[in-house]
Amino acid sequence: MHLLLTLVQDMILAAIPAVGFALVFNVPPRALVYCAAGGAIGHGVRMLLLAAGVPIEWGTLFAASLVSFLGVYYAQKLRAHPKVFTVAAMIPMIPGVPLFTTLLAIVEIQRSGYTPELFSTALSSGLKAAFIVGALAIGLAMPGLIYYRRRPIV
């Protein structure tokens, strides 16, 4: 019961940023609801996988692939490329904090000198950010890599 409540809260909190950033990307109004659904499903599935002990990169890859396969179906109904709304749905999973932590740690090494702690912060959060972004992009590309190999999705 507690897990279900956390899941619902997590999905709502992920759907709002997906729509918020869809506004920045000027996603057509009709597709906004798909952004919200994709953001909620992706982040919710990843949260469940993380709770089950799956590493974050693999959880992200699975969640992104799932959203992308669902996106293909709605893209064909909408007559638009799935990336039009699936990228906005990935925004809640983008590792923004690790990305900025890496760069700030690097700048800090330059400002106040090398320490092993700063270096390890830079390296570990940088790798985390890179792997999660990679998992998101490859997950989104999954329908094209697996199923629509030599033909267009829309």
């Binding site: 990228v87 990935m90 925004i91 983008i94 992009a137 490859i138 989104l140 590309a141």
Partner: peptide, 18 residues
């Protein structure tokens, strides 16, 4: 500051390379 994460270019960058 998370509004300034360039999420779209990052995802496009990796999918272009893939």
């Amino acid at each position: 500051v998370l509004l300034l994460v360039p999420g779209f270019p990052l995802i496009n960058a990796v999918s272009d390379m893939v």
